[in-house]
Simulated assay, not measured.
Amino acid sequence: MLTRLLRREAPERCTAISEQAVMALLQRRTVQDVGAMTVFVELLDSTNLEQVDGRVLSILQSHLKSQDVLLRRLAVRSLVMLSGRCQKAATLQGLLPEVMQRLQDSDSEIRMGALTVLGSTLRLADGKTAGPIALQLFKTLLPLFENESSYVRERSILLCRDAMEVAVGTQRRQMRKDVRRSLVPLFFHLHDYDPSVAQASSETLHGAAKFLKRRQLRKLLKTEQPWKIGECLLAEGSSRAEEYLQQSLPYLRSPQQPLREAAVRFIGLAGRQLRDGRQENRQVICDGIGIVKCMINRLRASLSSLSHPSVQYVPITTVEDSYITILQNDD
């Protein structure tokens, strides 16, 4: 509050006070760390960036690992601001491993800040730094596709796109399996409620198709025909279809209705392809069908008192064929 008042009433003093905050940080007096960090962050836009040297960045790196959530937040906030300045963003690459660890922080503000920093700096880092980070990022980012925050979903999806683009040589070969595992989540998030997440999914899925040299998939993405894309994924062969089927089951319980409906249809496509396959495949599909039937029964119960002519839910069920489809009239 005081620093904000200072910026409004006496902006000419901000630079001097920010310099004092930097000096306090360099002295590393633990008791003063929170106060000095708060002033440093609040007045960072008044700070001479030449003062933010390796010593200050080392302190920020240390605070990223602090047990104190407030210090971690302040460190991430300062890095978000620094990463937004072209002349400083490239100098942050040494902190990227620690920033990446913050993607798993228990604090949502810190996770979002870490995504922002990585999104601003990964492309600017040299190959020696960016490549190993990109390899690790994919495994860390995939669970974030399902985060309740649309910002986290969008940024994590776009960061996967960036990771594919900075990987080179052997890193690309090592990344192929993780990129392939991202195809189904990206496909489902083409149906995301949030248009920015859906757009990010489309861009990243196109990048993944290019990475994996899937020409037909790239072609279908240009036509914007979601179900053709689903069929294309399942056409890779029975082993891939099995893997994709397993990945689709959690989406039957997605909090987003469009993703649940997409999962039902995808399982129907998989059922038709795998109905003559091994018994374990049929069991997986039947398990999915069981979930869908429960969903339909709950939906029918909730709609039993309503009469809405524009929506019809017509389940088509054959256990032997192992698929279900929900038909919904256009508005």
Results as ranks from 00 to 15, higher is better:
G207E: 03
Q174F: 08
L103D: 02
M23T: 15
N281H: 10
V264W: 06
Q247L: 08
R214F: 14
L95K: 05
Q101V: 07
L142C: 05
T30Q: 14
A16R: 09
Q32S: 10
H191F: 15
R278E: 13
S304I: 08
T47N: 01
V152K: 13
R298L: 07
L82E: 03
C294Y: 15
S46N: 15
L137W: 05
Q32I: 04
E231F: 06
L137M: 09
K128R: 14
T15V: 14
Y313N: 02
K213H: 15
Q32P: 00
R214T: 08
G119W: 00
S106F: 14
D178F: 07
R111I: 03
L2K: 11
R176C: 07
L43E: 03
R123Q: 14
Q32M: 11
G290D: 13
L144Q: 08
Q101H: 12
D330L: 15
R7Q: 15
E50P: 00
R153G: 04
T204N: 03
V69T: 12
E231W: 08
V34M: 13
G268S: 12
M164Y: 01
R153E: 04
P309W: 11
C160P: 01
L2F: 13
R28T: 10
D126Q: 13
P315V: 12
S248R: 05
P226H: 14
S149C: 10
M1W: 08
A167C: 05
Q101E: 13
S62E: 15
P309T: 09
D45I: 07
T325R: 11
T223Q: 15
E231M: 10
I296W: 08
E203G: 06
R181D: 06
S304G: 05
S62T: 14
L327S: 08
R218D: 14
V117L: 05
A208L: 03
Y193V: 15
A163G: 04
R29Q: 12
N329Q: 10
P315N: 14
A125S: 07
R153S: 06
V76P: 00
A263T: 02
R298P: 00
L60F: 05
F145D: 00
R253G: 04
Q104R: 10
S58M: 11
I285Q: 02
S310E: 13
T30N: 10
E280F: 10
L71P: 00
R173K: 14
I324W: 01
S302Y: 11
S182L: 02
V99G: 00
E224M: 03
L252Q: 06
Q279K: 15
L299E: 11
Q312K: 15
L144N: 05
V166M: 00
V179L: 13
S202D: 07
Q32G: 04
V117I: 07
L299I: 09
S108R: 13
Q61T: 05
E12G: 06
L122T: 00
Q328N: 14
Q283F: 09
C286F: 09
L74V: 01
A75K: 10
L82I: 07
S304A: 15
V22D: 02
H63Q: 13
Y151E: 11
K219S: 15
L6C: 02
V52M: 02
M1V: 09
E19R: 13
A209K: 02
Q20C: 12
Q87T: 09
D178S: 11
V69Y: 07
G237C: 06
Q199D: 12
G288T: 01
R172I: 00
L234M: 00
M81V: 10
L43Q: 05
L220K: 10
R282M: 04
Q20G: 11
S78E: 02
R180E: 09
S304Y: 08
L74G: 01
P97L: 11
